[in-house]
Design a protein around this nucleic acid. Structure first.
Lengths: 97, 97
DNA sequence: CATCTATTTCAGTTTTTAATTTAATACTAA
DNA sequence: TTAGTATTAAATTAAAAACTGAAATAGATG
């Protein structure tokens, strides 16, 4: 891996390496969600979710669309979707739980 | 992904998300290496490499064997090897460089 | 034993990151 | 316009991580 790739990949992993952000990404795999919906799932404040979302947007992982009062977020990088699938595959028990 | 898995995977990603540690892991994909060999590749101090290695060992990613004065390090988790292969596949240009 | 090499550990400093609170913005609906 | 909801932004504080340099350990060599 070239040094530049190492830097970029490390930055991506760092962005994904916070439990709240990783959980947000898992949630967004299935459907787009607004800040308030995410807040209920991850049990923190709106402001905190918003901060984490802005980190994810800055990294280019998540993008948003606005509809009335709500801002709906989705994963905007196919490679990240694949990466999360691989992480599930490697580190999570299979099963339909 | 269960909350426990989210925590564990986030911790793993965090461990891998430092450029020096990610580079060490890339180097160790090909062969085991002593601290001094790694230091030459990543251009920092022995103490710094040693500290990063101890983080990788604590996470269970790397293990070591001692031979005379040297401590040879290797990746000790097949899943991490697979994960790095996937990262290369997704985020690095192919080619034999 | 004295010394050299490789590595680790420790203490101190700086940098980075996370969470909290508060204020501001954007839109809706009466 | 006024009030209410959803989201963002800015500032503060607290906590964690990174780097440096010096000292300590372990084994090798003479």
């Amino acid at each position: 891996m070239k040094d530049e790739d190492v830097r970029d990949v490390a930055a991506l992993l760092k962005t994904m390496s916070h439990p709240i952000r990783l959980k947000i990404l898992c949630l967004l795999q299935e459907k787009e969600m607004a800040v308030g919906d995410i807040r209920e799932e991850v049990k923190t404040t709106n402001a905190n979710v918003s901060q984490h979302l802005s980190i994810l947007r800055n990294q280019g992982i998540v993008s948003s669309r606005k509809d009335a009062n709500f801002i709906y977020n989705r994963i905007d990088d196919q490679r990240v979707l694949e990466l999360i699938a691989k992480l599930r595959d490697l580190f999570c028990e299979e099963g339909d739980g």
